[in-house]
Design a protein around this nucleic acid. Structure first.
Lengths: 214, 214
DNA sequence: TAGATTGTTAATCGATTAACAATC
DNA sequence: TAGATTGTTAATCGATTAACAATC
């Protein structure tokens, strides 16, 4: 049923649909039409129907969409229903915050280890998970087979770590560093989070609006 | 010189240009052509020239672009050259990590205050900045005039805080919460960072690639 | 001047929106 | 059945790429 070439733009909207449908469910709303949803989400009903129909006909003519069912389908599309193991590389400020702030289980991940190259951080723990030295990565990976790593390290050591992780079977990276993984490893699965890029984008928008006012 | 309607897509690429040019500068490279840059950044030379020409002719025919000069121009476009004051709302894990991890000064911001509604966190300090109770927001804003707020709070109290901040002259929001600011305040300047959306996008990509392998 | 590379216009491609027949 | 709303095709819009004249 699923189309072959689904665009990045469509995929990036799915998590938002998922969130909104979750909100509706909490309010006890069981059915919704593309028009109603479009008004809530500030986009067009056409786009919603197009997006969903990339993956299958989840609605019913004359009725709309069943909220719980649609949400479940999107969860499956996003792979939230299958649990994979994830490790965090870097137990600095950011690594600690991600560990404590993100509820990985909610999104189909089990946080199974935290690593840092600084021996001083070893054996500390964050939210009950022991911080291990990166020397122990090989042993840990062969025992636990994580498939995804969160990179919370500076650019400097990143290439070496990614190379090592790939040899150990980790090929998906949630990348908070400024290291460009795809440049060296074009077949890795990468999602970059460039917080400072986001900040600069905001700076631009803010500047523009204040220019207009003047 | 600047065109009127510059698309969001172009703006989102500017921080990346800025970062790459910074890297070149560090390597002591003084000039670069759109073709050379396009190979480094994995995009087309055409796109680079189109993007830059939204803001002016920064290059020179037969030569290319002066790295330092171009970087400076982009800094100005992004508003990195003008310092504005920013406050952080929420001194939880995320607020603490943002405070310690982001070098606001590098991007034209001065972090001038951290606020939390939990009295227990009051008077603690993060990186040398005292955490204040949100009750003190009004006084603080009239004394310091911050223009941007980083929202590191749960969705629940967010609307109330945003409303208050806008009354106090803060209209730009770096929003890490799931609260949809623009729904209630359509003229606010908002940059959303939805970390969990990003994680789900990665989950989708990872799932797809493992499906292909099977 | 000749060679290189920009700035800019034109062509292509992809994504969004509109329209409507299918159908519950 | 009549009304509503989907799924899907067609039209529009915008963004990317290609081409080339301008010019350093």
């Amino acid at each position: 049923m699923q189309k072959d070439n689904i665009s990045k733009s469509v995929i990036r909207r799915l998590p938002r649909y998922y969130r909104f449908l979750g909100g509706l469910l909490k309010q006890g709303i069981t059915k919704i039409s593309s028009r109603e949803l479009s008004e809530m989400m500030r986009l067009t009903a056409s786009q919603i129907r197009q997006d969903l129909n990339c993956f299958g006909g989840f609605g019913q003519q004359g009725y709309g969409y069943n909220v719980a069912e649609l949400r479940g389908e999107i969860a499956k599309i996003l792979g939230l229903d299958v649990t994979e193991k994830v490790i965090i590389i870097g137990a600095g400020n950011l690594g600690r915050a991600i560990t404590m702030h993100i509820d990985f289980a909610k999104y189909g991940y089990e946080l199974s280890g935290i690593f840092d190259s600084n021996a001083a951080k070893e054996n500390g723990d964050i939210s009950g998970i022991t911080v291990m030295h990166t020397d122990r990565l090989a042993d840990f990976c062969s025992a636990n087979s994580p498939t995804m790593a969160v990179l919370c390290i500076p650019r400097a050591g990143a290439k070496e770590i990614v190379e090592k992780l790939r040899e150990l079977g980790v090929n998906a990276f949630w990348n908070f560093s400024h290291y460009d993984i795809l440049f060296d490893f074009p077949d890795a699965i990468v999602e970059n989070v460039h917080l400072t890029d986001s900040l600069m984008t905001l700076s631009y928008a803010a500047k523009r609006s204040s220019d207009d006012t003047e």
